[in-house]
């Protein structure tokens, strides 16, 4: 079966229902849709195991922070790839920053382990069921999650910086 956005979406919606698969768009040739925390684990497992789809390669995942969106401050983006059909798919899950909990994918893809640790490190997203959810890139005693938009980029210890100049 040739995978197209239509038939893949149809198949997924047939499986998981309209309520769980929303907002399907196609921004750059890769179909993107939203889902929710309850569905995401089953969905990705289904995509991997389905004989027809074989979307069985987790390309990447990352967190995104939208401070302006109420109750949808955080987003987790999953990008999957079917090597067999050369078909890419992007799934997003939005959730409030007050409750940054996501199910882990480590039982489906081994590669999810560090990606989730990275998301935890950067955004403080807690993946339930992750075997070893600790910071991966930053020092363990760091007190905040640096990729959240409210935190500054600059190292505050820098001395030679002259702020008087225009620009940024």
């Amino acid at each position: 079966m040739e995978l197209t956005n239509e038939n893949v979406l149809g198949k997924i919606i047939a499986q998981f229902g309209e309520d769980n698969i929303t907002n399907a768009v196609n921004p750059d040739g890769i179909m993107t849709f939203d889902t929710n925390r309850q569905t995401i684990h089953e969905l990705i497992k289904y995509l991997r195991d389905d004989e027809e789809l074989q979307i069985s390669f987790l390309t990447t995942m990352c967190g995104i922070h939208y401070p302006e969106q109420k109750d949808k401050e955080l987003c987790m983006m999953y990008q999957l790839h079917s090597l067999r059909h050369n078909y890419r798919l992007r799934i997003k899950v939005y959730f409030p920053i007050s409750d940054p909990v996501m199910p882990t994918l480590t039982d489906i893809y081994a590669t999810a382990n560090w990606m989730e640790r990275e998301a935890y490190d950067f955004y403080g997203i807690i993946f339930t069921g992750h075997p070893n959810l600790i910071r991966i890139l930053n020092v363990e005693d760091m007190e905040y999650h640096p990729m959240l938009k409210q935190y500054p980029l600059e190292d505050q210890t820098r001395e030679d910086k002259v702020n008087t100049f225009f620009g940024r």
Partner: peptide, 15 residues
């Protein structure tokens, strides 16, 4: 004009 300072990704130019 300050374009160089703006363009500098390392913020190394002051004028």
């Amino acid at each position: 004009c300050g374009l160089c300072a703006v363009a500098c990704p390392a913020e190394a130019i002051t004028m």
